[in-house]
């Protein structure tokens, strides 16, 4: 089996060659991802085959967000934190290069594992994802993500945690 490494974005990673087949995600990596990372808007994680490899096999971004709940009945309000918003982790973008088929799930698992690890220090009740199209919605749904709003899905942190510790 091919081994993969996950590392923070660095200058030697070749963004121009990356092609996941979705122009908006290619362009994001080429033009905005580094700026978002520099400005602490989203953390950019890169998947490579070998250490110090410049070829990007895939990438994802992570940041925190909050989910504002509205109109919950009293019995729910008793059982979840009494705040209008629930803290969450957000996988904003996730894409793999066309030449690395079958690695999307590895990117997703690394992102989930990282969220679970961070949740020991920074509370997050769920992991949200932004799906760019219907294909992406189906991809996340297969792994048990549930619809949050139109193109957003979520996985409860407790579910992710039980996966990692099992």
């Amino acid at each position: 089996m091919t081994a993969y490494l996950f590392e923070r974005y660095a200058a030697h990673h070749e963004r121009a060659d990356f092609d996941c087949g979705v122009e908006i995600l290619n362009r994001y990596l080429r033009e905005r991802a580094r700026q978002d990372d520099d400005r602490d808007a989203a953390r950019l994680w890169i998947m490579v085959e070998t250490p110090l490899s410049s070829k990007i096999a895939g990438y994802y971004t992570l940041c925190t967000t909050s989910v504002n709940l509205d109109g919950l009945p009293p019995d729910f309000q008793k059982r979840i934190p009494r705040y209008p918003s629930v803290p969450a982790f957000l996988i904003g973008r996730l894409a793999r290069d066309l030449s690395f088929k079958g690695t999307g799930k590895l990117l997703l698992m690394d992102a989930i594992q990282r969220c679970v690890r961070q949740s020991n220090e920074i509370a997050g009740a769920l992991i949200a994802v932004d799906a760019k199209d219907e294909g992406a919605v189906q991809f996340y749904t297969r792994f048990g993500f549930r619809p949050l709003s139109e193109r957003r899905l979520f996985l409860p942190m407790a579910t992710a945690r039980s996966l990692i510790v099992s």
């Binding site: 729910f76 409860p156 942190m157």
Partner: peptide, 11 residues
Amino acid sequence: VAEALVHPPAP
């Protein structure tokens, strides 16, 4: 969301 937080499904 509240239902999933109160009764998180198994993976």
